[in-house]
Write a protein that binds this DNA or RNA. Structure first.
Lengths: 194, 194
DNA sequence: TTCCCTTACGTACACAGAGTATGTATCCTG
DNA sequence: CAGGATACATACTCTGTGTACGTAAGGGAA
């Protein structure tokens, strides 16, 4: 008994995506069944399978969505920071840390995603978003071409781990952890700035 | 019909562990069933459940074993490098990169482990092994106490990502990728050395 | 030696969850 | 206003985990 058409269907897909995002973020991928997602979205598993190929596909859509949000935040921060690549690197990196720790993104993007969609695919997603910005600004800031990919990986990994460290730190001290992460990050980035 | 006793049982447990290590490393945690492991080890699932609490428990044992191996390699390299903390940091970091990319460790330790055993537990394991060494040498090299944990996380994450980058790089160019990773790592560590 | 408890498995079963096949009511297009 | 196409719901199958139970050997205690 489908009450829906066209626009309503897209709305349903979005509700499923939102429910999945919440559940995956709070319990982790493995502990969430598609029945949980369907119930939370007020539909049956049939609807979920209609809009997404399978559980991994749904997760992929969730991850891509979050990834795009984070990349947006980074891009905005870098643009606001001005035209100097050094400032863009600093501002973008800090924005990345804040954006990815704020959202329900950490569990999904940094813990489950590599295992669920595979590291290759995960990195491909990342390379199309925030990592691309990082790589470009590192090039402008004078990192040698031969070391560009490796350096991008290093710094990307550093910031990801810092984000996990902040997100999973004792909840009463998240703010001080965040401050320390930013300070340590500055120290690290200083070696790339003039 | 148990043919085994005491010493033979330990041998069985080890065979199961070895089989699990191979299978988890090549296919990833989710794609390996306990029946696969049991068959590969020449026993039934009953034997697996006798020696390990459940699938996650078996995986945890595998991860802990690999983790210890890597930490050993790092400790040895640091000791050989001499008494100067700066040299220990350099040598230990490079040894870490080589050790973790050589073994079947990458898929298990860096991709599946955080998702399977949880990030908190994973970090606890890491903190008892290679991360502890890193933290200590960073302290000796002059990193401020307030930034010690954050900096350890940053550098640990950087090296983990570099390891993934090397391990998953195009198989025909693994060696050049490794060289680039080492070079970029040196560049990064240089800011912590005199 | 015999008894009996424990160890070290093997076997059988229950249950959850993923994926698939099928049914069906609504929408949309000609 | 037919007739597909869409958007779901329902029902079923199958794989894999976990658990309960069975059972043969090892190893002290009597």
């Amino acid at each position: 008994m489908p009450r829906a058409s066209a626009a309503v269907a897209a709305q349903t897909a979005q509700r499923v995506l939102d429910s999945a995002t919440r559940l995956f973020a709070s319990r982790g991928y493995a502990a969430v069944s598609l029945d949980d997602v369907a119930q939370s979205a007020g539909v049956t598993r049939g609807a979920v399978y209609h809009h997404y190929a399978n559980k991994a596909g749904l997760f992929g859509a969730v991850a891509a969505s979050l990834q795009a949000n984070v990349a947006d935040a980074v891009a905005v921060a870098a643009e606001v920071a001005g035209a100097q690549p050094a400032e863009q690197l600093r501002a973008g990196s800090h924005a990345f840390l804040d954006a990815i720790t704020a959202a329900p993104a950490v569990q999904i993007l940094l813990i489950d995603a590599p295992a669920v969609v595979g590291w290759q695919e995960w990195r491909r997603l990342d390379a199309q978003n925030s990592a691309a910005l990082l790589r470009e600004v590192l090039r402008e800031v004078g990192v040698a071409d031969a070391l560009l990919d490796a350096t991008t990986a290093l710094l990307s990994g550093a910031m990801n781990e810092a984000a996990l460290w902040v997100a999973q730190s004792d909840e009463t001290e998240t703010d001080t952890a965040r401050d320390q992460a930013h300070a340590a990050l500055d120290r690290l980035l200083a070696s790339f700035l003039p």
